[in-house]
Write a protein that binds this DNA or RNA. Structure first.
Lengths: 168, 168
DNA sequence: TTGAAATTTCAAAACTTATTGAAAGTTTGT
DNA sequence: ACAAACTTTCAATAAGTTTTGAAATTTCAA
């Protein structure tokens, strides 16, 4: 397989992958393109390579910057802005985990705390089933929260090596 | 807060949560409803509680059964079918991980293997950047694959207790 | 300052995904 | 064998999401 075809396949598959994980296709494709590009790219280059509009590139680049996955780079003497992606895949994962934890896990845990204070007789089987479920999810959620915090703070090798020790 | 309101909030939030994880809102809501219901429910009861059509309930129930998250229950003397959800949250997570691993991680790893065999001079910086990225993701992906396999096979307490030991 | 180059915005259009509901199919009791 | 009860299917439609592209805004070298 030629490099150009391989790059295209990679970008396309990373895009599809993203859609399964709540990241929009274009955002994931831009990220993929930047990951396999040795040099920083401009918005125009991305428009060209991915066949998407200027507005689309701009909005998704901004979102990638919010997530910490892409950085703006100013090259002296150049009017245009250049962009580079974080290429260390472990850092990428940590950034994504951090962001999604904040957006999804934390609000869920807050709600579960409120819901645990539901009024009503614990002998009522509806109340009991409800509390059992909520409590179970809360326990798991808190565990996940702690675990992910550790992961986010950990250095790559520490995490990998612990995982290897535990699971080999 | 009254139990009915608490249930509603839980169902609605679990639905929203699902959409961030590639599971459709209704499927997640049906699952939530079944998790907090002490008894098995019929399709008609779900239509009522969630205000959705018969077809919608039916399709999503079928999908939940495919994932192993819900079971059909036949009650002697009853013409209708009843449904119950898996309520052990760790089993739920394991079933979801198993399914998504198969649907997403495994195809990705297959592609990466193919892409690693790209032709071209490794001195070419494009080829080099490409291979570095692909190899990095493959390593991470293989690690995740192993880890998730272990998790899927593990008994609840084994996994929880190991996690606790490692991360407390 | 000025104005050409570049970036950003956002309403409308295109596309994708989910839902409905009525018709077709299946099951079960008599 | 029939028909009532129940389940399944799927084409049409609705809802939701992403993308476009042109206009507005910003930037910066001269």
């Amino acid at each position: 397989m030629k490099i150009t075809e391989a790059r295209q396949q990679f970008i396309s598959q990373w895009g599809a992958f993203g859609t399964h994980w709540g990241i929009n296709r274009t955002m994931a494709q831009i990220h993929a393109l930047l990951m396999v590009s040795p040099d920083a790219l401009t918005q125009d280059e991305m428009m060209d390579e991915l066949n998407i509009s200027r507005g689309n590139v701009n909005m998704n680049i901004r979102e990638l910057i919010n997530w910490g996955l892409v950085e703006r780079q100013v090259i002296p003497g150049e009017r245009k802005e250049f962009f580079v992606a974080e290429k260390d895949i472990w850092k990428v994962i940590r950034l994504i985990v951090k962001e999604r934890k904040k957006r999804e896990l934390e609000p869920m845990l807050e709600l579960l705390n409120k819901l645990e204070e539901v009024e009503g007789d614990k002998k009522d089987k509806n109340v009991k089933a409800f509390l059992d479920t909520v409590t179970g999810i809360k326990k798991l959620g808190r565990q996940a929260d702690k675990t992910l915090d550790m992961m986010v703070k950990a250095e790559e090798n520490w995490f990998v090596s612990n995982m290897l020790k535990l699971f080999k």
